[in-house]
Structures are given as C-alpha cells and as structure tokens.
Amino acid sequence: MKKRGGLLAAPYTVWMALFTVIPMLLVVYFAFTGEDGRFTFGNFSQLLGYGAVFGRSFWLAALATVVCLAVGYPLAYAMSRETGAVRNTAMLLLMLPMWINILLRTYAWMSILENKGLLNQLLSFLRLPPVRIINTPAAVALGMVYNYLPFMVLPILTVIQKIDGSVIEAAQDLGGSQFTVFKRVILPLSLPGVLSGVTMVFVPGVSTFIISQLLGGGKSMMLGDLIEMQFLGSTYNPYLGSAISLVMMVIVLISMAVMNRFGEGEEEVMVL
C-alpha cells in the first residue's frame, strides 16, 4: 500500500516543478545573464553600487528585530503567566491586528506620523518640540516593529507555555531564585521560540517594500523597493532584479539554516 499511496502526490510534484522549482531556477538563470542573453557576473558587480540599499535594509530590519525582541520577550513572558479570561483576551488582542491587511495597518501610521499629524499635535499639546519622522528610516523601522511584533511574541509564547511546570518547580525547590530560575531554566528552554521569532521578523523586514513605500516616502529605499523597480518600475531589468532576489534568497537560507541548527525543525504550521 505504501508505494501506491505515494502516487497521490504526483500531481502536486508536477505543480511544484512548474511553479516552485522552475521559477527559482529562472531567478538563478536571469541573475547570471546579461541583457544580451550571455552568461555574466555583471549583475552582481552592479550590485556593489547599491551597497547603501543593502546596508539600510539590513540595519533597519535588524533594528526592528532587536526592538521586537526587547518588547516581545517580556510581553510573551507576561502573557504566559496570565490565566483564563485575561490570557484569552490578551491573545485575541495580539492576533487581531494580524488579520488586517498590512497595507491598512501601515497606512494608519501615515496620518499619525505626518509633520502636522496626530503625534506632533500631541507633542505640541504637551509643549514638546515636534518631531520630523515621516519619510525617514526611523518611520520605516517603527512600521516594521508595529507590523511584525506579533510574529516575535507568538513563537516565544508558544515555547514558554510548553515548558514543563515541574522543571521550574524543581529549580525553585533546589533553591534557585526567581532570577536564577529564569536565567538557567526558562531562558534556555525558550531559545527556539526566540530564534523562530527573530527569523519571522527579520525576513519580512529585510524584504519589505510596502512599509518603506508608505512610511519612507521612497526616500529610504530598501531591497524590496529595488527589486520592485527592476520588475515593475520604469527601469525594467529582470536580470539585475533576479540577482538582488538571489542574494536575498541566500540571506534567507542562511538565517533559516542558523535557526534550524539551534531549534528543532518543526513542521507544524501556526494556525491563527
């Protein structure tokens, strides 16, 4: 029975070959092809000219990841200690924004961050100097934190909740202080969640172009914008675009590999 059942996956294997494997191979092929159709490394040497864009994307995605971790870990920890209705409400509140389209969530910040926007109205009401934040990299980082914070909290929360309560009790019985128990037991056991949260924030962050378009005002161009420009912009150049995509894919693969090495590769999909 084993062998015959396997054939059921045949249609999907064909589908994946056509729409997953071939597209990826095409990206690789285009990345090494010049506009004359010949093999070249030229696209990659052109990339050197976009060092600033690479740098900015990394820096902003890393910054957003660090902020998400700094806020998200304590938040996940606090949520894990709640019970009953409070925890259910907290979970609902955390997940609800994820169900609203990222474009709308990001758009919401536009009116808040505008130079004469609500944030500056609030500041002037408090007799504080106004801030110029819209169309700056800071606004992009803020947008990332806002959009991706739940992606950091949920995996950490899941892992902390799975920690066996008796392990914590044992540590306490053996005389560990609150801090020691946290440092020696909870923190190491929650590391897989942290790693998965870091990837889930960093990967979409480094590749975003919605957030940089809406909040960065096109001034702080990121990798996503660069790719979009090559494929749909006025400078149609799928060769260069593929080279950038390929580099980004390699980055993602490396960060996935790092994550898999530390955490156990789980095949579950997160529902809700």
């Binding site: 729409f19 997953t20 990206v27 990967v203 979409p204 590749s207 799928p238 980004m248 993602v252 996935m256």
Partner: peptide, 16 residues
C-alpha cells in the same frame, strides 16, 4: 513558498 519572502515568490512566478 512558506519561508521565501513573498516578494521573491512573486517575482519568480512573474518570470515564469
């Protein structure tokens, strides 16, 4: 497609 950034899934499909 799950782990790839959406933008890469998008452009690679576009190429095909």
């Amino acid at each position: 497609p799950v782990v790839n950034p959406d933008i890469i899934t998008g452009v690679s499909l576009m190429l095909v």
